[in-house]
């Protein structure tokens, strides 16, 4: 900035800084609220007025992962002292942990949904990025008749509303028995992310000078060797950024998962809202599930911060 600033400009800057601060607080407040709710005891989650200062506890996370039921009668003092600390937290909230005949605790529905989300998001990301990278290299380095049309075709498959695609996929999957399977959802997410991955990777590969490979070819590498030993290492950052974007998309996806999965392969996004149900939901447990689910995305957003613009604009706008 210019060294000379008028007083009015300096005042304006101060106003801007304060406004930015207010906007940031407003934007982060909903996220803060969900995180704080996930550390509240149940009776503080729905108070009027809302409880802002409280002593955090982790009972919502215990209740999230283990099967539990309402306490019919208070536990005897012996039962209470014999119980491990996490079970006592559940007792304090007026519930008990369901144990099998041999006294083993059982997992609730959440952990398996979380693992399903991980398996499906990671596998489909690997497939979409691997195929996307080689296809992007093909489009970037070789002439292809009707190249722009193919690229448009690839992108348009991403733009379709999920429900439109889901109707025929549901019917086809029913014929081949892929409904409610991991494989079925992995295929769908791979197809969904593939177009994105081709477009983004093409941008990254276009930036790698052709001369690198040509030098390698002159040195006696084959095209394949040049691709694997020269281009791929150069594209590493781009591949990582693309992978994180694909992961987040698959991780967050709701409509396909709602339609195509019921239980065995259900991911977290359709599962978490289904927990609200009717009556009085335990918002601390829902918040805990939400918080754990959002955490990986928050971390990835931070790691991706320099590539966000590029990813969100399909590689069209670079910084």
């Amino acid at each position: 900035m210019a060294a000379v600033q008028t007083t009015s400009e300096r005042a304006l800057n101060k106003v801007a800084i304060i406004s930015v601060l207010i906007v940031t607080i407003i934007f982060l407040a909903p996220i803060y609220w969900i995180v704080s709710t996930s550390f509240k005891p149940r009776h503080l989650a729905t108070t009027v007025p809302p409880t802002i200062v409280f002593e955090p506890e982790i009972s919502p996370f215990v209740k999230l992962t283990l099967r539990r039921s309402q306490l019919r009668e208070q536990p005897t003092p012996e039962e209470y002292t014999a119980a491990p600390w996490w079970e006592r937290l559940v007792f304090d909230g007026g519930e008990k942990i369901v144990r099998s005949g041999r006294g083993e605790v059982q997992l609730s529905g959440y952990p398996s949904r979380f693992v399903n989300s991980l398996i499906i998001a990671i596998t489909s990301t690997i497939l979409a990025v691997a195929m996307g990278t080689i296809t992007a290299y093909g489009f970037s380095r070789f002439k292809m008749p009707g190249e722009q049309d193919w690229l448009f075709f690839i992108l348009s498959t991403r733009m379709l509303p999920p429900v439109v695609v889901a109707i025929p996929m549901f019917l086809m999957y029913r014929v081949v028995g892929l409904n409610d399977t991991h494989v079925g959802l992995i295929i769908l997410y791979t197809a969904f992310n593939l177009s994105f991955s081709v477009w983004l990777m093409k941008g990254f590969i276009d930036e790698i000078p052709k001369e690198y490979e040509e030098a390698a070819l002159v040195d006696g590498y084959t095209r394949m060797e040049a691709f694997f030993k020269v281009v791929l290492p150069e594209a590493a950052t781009g591949i990582a950024a693309t992978a994180v974007f694909c992961f987040i998309t698959a991780w967050n996806e709701y409509a396909f998962a709602l339609i195509m999965t019921r239980r065995d392969a259900q991911t977290a996004p359709p599962f978490i809202p289904s927990q609200v149900g009717s009556g009085l939901p335990d918002w601390t447990v829902i918040a805990a599930g939400t918080f754990l689910f959002l955490l990986p995305v928050a971390i990835f957003t931070f790691l991706l911060r320099n590539h966000l613009l590029r990813g969100m604009s399909f590689g069209a706008i670079r910084k």
Partner: peptide
Amino acid sequence: TTLLLLPMMLSMAVVGLFWKLLYDPSFGI
């Protein structure tokens, strides 16, 4: 900037869910 970008990276389904809590007529923030 990075903090402000956080909302758009989250799952729309889960965002919709926790805004229900924020919008609640009696105990919503």
